[in-house]
Computed example of a mutant assay.
Amino acid sequence: MKINTETKLIGLIGYPLGHSFSPLMQNAAFERYLLNKIYIPIEVSPENLETVVKGISKMNFDGFNVTIPYKIDIIKYLDEIDEYAKCIGAVNTVSIKNGVLKGYNTDGIGFLKSYKQNTGTKIEGKKVFVLGSGGASRAVSMTLALDKADKIYICNRTYEKALALSNDINEKVGECSVAVPFFHEDMKTAIDDSDILINTTNVGMFPNIDFSPIDKDLLNEKLTVCDVVYNPKKTKLLQEAEEIGCETVFGLSMLLYQGAEAFEIWTEKKAPVDLMLKILEDGLKEN
């Protein structure tokens, strides 16, 4: 592809960004359709977030993704928010049309597609234990509630953050969420009552691959254990879950489907999912 004055940019805003495979996946998808677009990482320190977003709005950008730690903070710098993203309270995808920045959230949809594709089962009626209360957790947890999960336990090291998210779910969707203190016995009681456990934190992400967000003895063989961390493909949490007989769902699948949704927002074309998956898997092998 020739880069010229007509080339449209799409970025990834976060800090840090050394772990991201999104540029590989999205650029391959653009090339498949011969689109004159380039996806670039934009590592932004917190004090510069507003300045960078304002600059992007005046440049040749079609949009950008947002990752840790800005999925909530980004909202105050946008012109419009999609109703689904507004309900979630977090944004991971932004489109720019005629200078208007509109926020979306594809994380929740990405997780849901990943879960259903890998397990062949529905969320409806299930009890779910969610680790974390940041932007990814908001997207996943709110989507679980909208998809009629029976109960959603939210657990975070800072209990007040778990409580705030749990209350938000109950107010917006219905009484289905409970905040859980980050203490062994409280967590064990909730996990023993759950069908699914989801890690939405970045614990276990490369290069800190020897860490798990919870102790192995909190797991039990009846759980389906999911991790949003995709690098490494099999985190320590998932390794330990498999050792005791749990069904597991890798984070790479969620990355794929949330990225495919974002691609379709920017291009209004069907995402080449098979190609995007191959690129992600190849990238992990080389990492």
Rank of each mutant, 00 (worst) to 15 (best):
G99D: 07
V100I: 14
V100H: 13
G103P: 00
Y104M: 02
T106F: 05
G108P: 08
G110H: 04
Y115Q: 07
Y115T: 01
K116Q: 15
N118V: 08
T121K: 14
E124Y: 13
E124Q: 15
V128I: 12
F129N: 04
F129L: 06
F129H: 07
G132H: 09
S133G: 08
G134Y: 06
G135I: 01
R138S: 02
V140K: 09
S141H: 09
S141R: 08
M142Q: 04
M142C: 00
A145L: 07
D147M: 07
K148Q: 14
K148M: 11
I152Y: 03
I152V: 07
Y153R: 05
Y153G: 07
Y153Q: 08
I154H: 02
C155T: 03
N156I: 03
N156P: 00
N156E: 09
N156M: 03
E160S: 15
K161G: 10
A162C: 02
L163I: 12
A164N: 14
A164Y: 13
A164G: 10
D168Q: 14
I169G: 02
N170F: 05
E171A: 13
E171S: 14
K172E: 10
V180Y: 10
F183D: 15
F183I: 13
F183S: 11
E185Y: 11
E185W: 10
D186H: 13
D186Q: 12
D186P: 01
T189A: 12
A190P: 00
I191A: 11
D192M: 14
D193L: 05
S194C: 01
S194L: 04
S194T: 02
D195G: 05
D195I: 01
T200W: 08
T200N: 01
T201S: 10
V203Y: 06
M205A: 03
F206Q: 05
F206P: 02
N208S: 11
